[in-house]
């Protein structure tokens, strides 16, 4: 019984977390998720009245951070936590991963509340996206990784409704009828859902194509 209560998992540093997430270490992934959840709950609890909204903000922010790490936008350079800037150079990060998560969550929350993306953290967002029209691809040694990153960024920019429909359809393999059932009153008819899904995919594809073109890929 005592062992059951004393069964405490070991802690990991941010450097270990980044390395673990990049090599898909499930133990570290789960540990970081739990840590992020606890930190989010203790820091954000009071501003949410709606549990679903809180869950959505956390999920979106966590996936964004997780994806940035997996796509090596955040990586370890000389044993230091670094983030890639516009000029493709990695600069040491001045804040922890959980601070980044909170910054993502705050933006997500503001966007959700006001439907306007606000820039408030220069380090996190000021240099976070690549400038359009820059032929950075030539300098980038892993084109596949860059393409993935561009697609991920575009997916994160689409509305939560679009992201839900596309994820249900393409990842979970749900039929339109099943998606109608899951989303309930959010779609009035099957035809409406079908056209929404097509429109979401078309918009996403246009954005991705445009960005890829800007990078000369």
């Amino acid at each position: 019984m005592a062992l059951f209560f004393l069964n405490k998992k070991r802690d990991y540093t941010d450097v270990e977390v980044v390395k673990g997430l990049q090599c898909r270490n499930v133990v570290i992934e789960e540990w970081f998720f739990e840590k992020a959840r606890r930190y989010f709950d203790s820091s954000f609890n009071e501003i949410f009245f709606d549990a679903d909204r809180k869950q959505e903000v956390f999920q979106t922010a966590f996936i964004k951070l997780w994806t940035e790490i997996e796509n090596k936008k955040i990586r370890i350079v000389d044993d230091a936590l670094c983030r890639q800037q516009t000029d493709l150079q990695y600069e040491p990060m001045r804040c922890s991963l959980t601070t980044f998560l909170m910054a993502f969550a705050k933006t997500e929350h503001r966007e959700m509340m006001r439907n306007v993306r606000e820039e408030y953290c220069e380090e996190v967002f000021g240099n976070s996206t690549y400038s359009n029209g820059t032929a950075v691809a030539e300098e980038y040694d892993d084109i596949e990784e860059l393409k993935n990153r561009i697609v991920d960024e575009c997916i994160q920019e689409i509305s939560s409704g679009c992201a839900e429909i596309l994820t249900l359809f393409y990842y979970e393999g749900k039929s339109l009828d099943e998606i109608m059932e899951i989303r309930k009153e959010k779609n009035s008819s099957k035809n409406g859902l079908k056209s929404a899904k097509n429109k979401c995919m078309t918009t996403l594809k246009e954005r991705v194509t445009e960005k890829l073109r800007n990078y000369n890929i």
Binding site: E34, I63, E145, V151, Y170, Y171, E172, M201, V208, T209
Partner: peptide
């Protein structure tokens, strides 16, 4: 590494990856 041919295929691939992460988070 996987080389994804056209944009459609890459989008579906990344949507699946996003779905995998969401599922994993639900499990945790």
């Amino acid at each position: 590494k996987k080389v994804v041919g056209d944009v459609d295929e890459r989008i579906v691939e990344r949507l699946k990856e996003r779905g995998r992460k969401l599922s994993q988070m639900k499990i945790w």
